[in-house]
Design a protein around this nucleic acid. Structure first.
Lengths: 252, 252
DNA sequence: GAGTGGTCTAGACCACCCA
DNA sequence: GGGTGGTCTAGACCACTCG
């Protein structure tokens, strides 16, 4: 009978709440401002705390909010553009590199990495590097370098540590780079990465995998993990745009 | 005294559960296989259903699981590599393009798009396209084309619809492309995109923004939305590697 | 209609930060 | 110690799919 069901799809509460909060963020709050706590917000909007949190999680995923345990929820600045390379291919650690060598060990890589490098169960050099921007740690990287790619590496340097990392990179640069290819996918931060990136374990991250080709092989493999909440990975291929940090960090 | 607290950081249950489930997926299940339902799984592992769901959500985020309401939870195949361009720059819709024109309207773009295009409050052409791979819809795109970029566009074609979309692209190709730059970031699917991609609203997506430069301006702006759970965006710059489906994703 | 995942509630306790 | 967000529980109902 006449029950014209116009709203046949009732919007979930957390979805509607997210919309409401987004508008509030745009109009009533400025970057860095601290929001009321979750219990108060939930009461204000007449929902359970869990429902409110579902909305906040979405907003954090979109980079609109930042939540820190023991502190509170703040309005996040716009995501920063992080340059991850131009069309010109260069070795990691080449001039002008923004990465900081942290460590280097010799170990057997994960199976997926070993497959890409076509090393069997052999040990490879694993260089650990980190990247900061605006004083914040934004990414960590594991660079897998087969022993065959750095044949002349000697033991004159320390067996591990930053200086060893630099030595491996130096040797790697002696190869002629034929090309590289990349892939970006969504991941979640492991315990180590989470600590390094000042996030909770399981936080969403953008994983940028780069294969470096030289001498007909994959000479090195880089797996870089970027904070997904604060970073926008930019592939600047046009001449006039390089690193482009968002100029405006203030709203309203 | 004497309480040597070795495990000062008790692992959250959902985190441990995720690890256990990951190992189970690797060893006891094969792709496409359906898991026990959430209530049974929660009971088996002695946790509340909400806690189990927290673990499942993580695994879905990592592309290991796929959940569908009314059906069940299945083991997801490895993410597919989706090629999103080489170092050679081409206009969208150029030869060999994998996108399917869907629609075209004239409308005022969002403020952020208008800023990038340096159009004021003017209307632009908005071409909607979709992309499928292996029979699945994997991405939707909105291509914003200022009227100034297609000055000779006539009204001989339909005012909207796929044929109009093709006409806009055809006119766009008459410009000489100077370059392009891209950015990738994490987003969440809006209601429209979610329907198109066969996901729930709010699902994580990878947003690939491409600016096309011609005649000293930004001649067009593409905002492509890829399913983050099933897609790995590949930037194939080396000659021998194109689309590369991951063969093995097994650990230890 | 039976079974699935999705949403929502009202509580509780814990880990962390800071005054 | 007081306040924050993070984790966890045990329930309930809803929306969807499929036989």
């Amino acid at each position: 009978m006449g029950t014209t069901q116009l709203e046949s799809v009732p919007e979930p509460k957390y979805w509607h709440l997210k919309t409401v909060l987004t508008e509030a963020l745009d109009s009533e709050f400025s970057v860095g401002e601290i929001l009321p706590n979750e219990r108060d917000l939930a009461a204000r909007y007449g929902v359970a705390r869990a429902t409110l949190r579902q909305a906040l999680e979405q907003l954090e995923l979109e980079g609109r909010l930042q939540r820190r345990r023991g502190v509170g929820t703040t309005v996040a600045p716009p995501r920063m553009g992080v340059a991850v390379g131009t069309s010109r291919h260069t070795w990691p650690g080449a001039g002008g590199d923004v990465w900081q060598p942290v460590d280097c060990v010799r170990s057997v890589p994960p199976a997926s990495v070993a497959a890409a490098l076509e090393t069997g169960g052999e040990e490879v050099h694993i260089v650990r590097r980190s990247r900061t921007s605006h004083g914040r740690s934004v990414a960590t990287e594991l660079l897998y370098v087969p022993a065959a790619s750095v044949p002349d590496l000697t033991a004159i340097d320390a067996p591990s540590g930053p200086s060893r990392a630099r030595a491996v990179l130096r040797e790697l640069h002696r190869l002629e780079l034929d090309g590289q290819d990349r892939a970006v996918e969504l991941g979640s931060a492991g315990a180590d990465d989470a600590r390094e990136l000042d996030r909770l374990p399981g936080s969403p991250v953008l994983v940028l995998t780069t294969r470096f080709h030289a001498a007909g092989r994959t000479a090195a493999l880089s797996v870089a993990t970027y904070r997904a909440d604060t970073c926008r990975l930019t592939f600047g291929d046009s001449p006039d745009v390089e690193i482009h940090d968002d100029p405006a960090r203030r709203a309203s």
